[in-house]
Amino acid sequence: MIRRYGEAVRSGQHYRRRPGVYAVLLQGNQVLTTFQESPKPEFQLPGGGIDRGEHPIAALHREVMEETGWHIRIARRLGAFRRFCYMPEYEFWAEKVCSIYLAHPVRPICRPTEPGHSAVWLPVIEALDLLGNEGDRAFLARALHQPR
């Protein structure tokens, strides 16, 4: 069973399953995050939805590049969690199935190409409070307690 974080499932609400991949990108005592300006300004683990027919690892590389401009090296999968939420950019309610990977930032390639996103290095102690959803915070904490 995959743990759920965030708001409770709304009775009678139809949710569209939305698989996604996200990265915990540690370097020393900092973590590379993406700051999303809208619909609600928040810090997030870089990543996003897996397109139809796309391999999850390819999606992770694509999403991290779009949101941070960084090339990464994936170390291992940390696990997964679910969130039930409204996605205003797509105008539907989603069951987000979020797979989280530990990865290493290799080098910056370009500025983020995803509109409204910027790459932000945060001290991990601050990120544990600032990340916008409980699942991201839980997996950052998990990554900090595992061998890198």
Results as ranks from 00 to 15, higher is better:
1 M>Y: 00
3 R>I: 08
4 R>Q: 12
4 R>P: 00
4 R>D: 06
5 Y>H: 11
6 G>E: 02
6 G>P: 00
6 G>H: 03
7 E>G: 12
12 G>K: 04
14 H>A: 13
15 Y>P: 02
17 R>A: 11
18 R>S: 14
18 R>E: 12
19 P>Y: 02
19 P>F: 04
20 G>W: 07
21 V>G: 10
21 V>I: 01
21 V>F: 02
22 Y>A: 09
22 Y>D: 05
24 V>L: 09
24 V>S: 08
25 L>G: 04
28 G>D: 07
28 G>M: 11
28 G>Q: 04
29 N>R: 13
29 N>M: 07
29 N>C: 11
30 Q>V: 05
31 V>E: 12
32 L>Q: 11
33 T>C: 15
33 T>E: 10
33 T>A: 10
34 T>V: 14
35 F>G: 01
36 Q>N: 08
38 S>Q: 13
39 P>G: 13
40 K>R: 14
40 K>G: 01
41 P>W: 07
42 E>F: 01
42 E>A: 15
43 F>H: 15
43 F>V: 05
43 F>G: 01
44 Q>V: 11
46 P>A: 12
50 I>A: 08
50 I>K: 09
50 I>S: 04
52 R>Y: 14
53 G>F: 01
53 G>V: 04
54 E>Y: 05
55 H>P: 00
55 H>W: 03
55 H>T: 06
55 H>R: 13
55 H>N: 12
56 P>F: 10
56 P>Q: 06
56 P>I: 03
56 P>H: 12
58 A>R: 15
58 A>D: 15
59 A>Q: 03
59 A>K: 02
60 L>Q: 13
61 H>L: 11
61 H>G: 01
64 V>E: 06
64 V>L: 06
66 E>P: 10
66 E>N: 05
66 E>I: 03
68 T>H: 05
68 T>S: 11
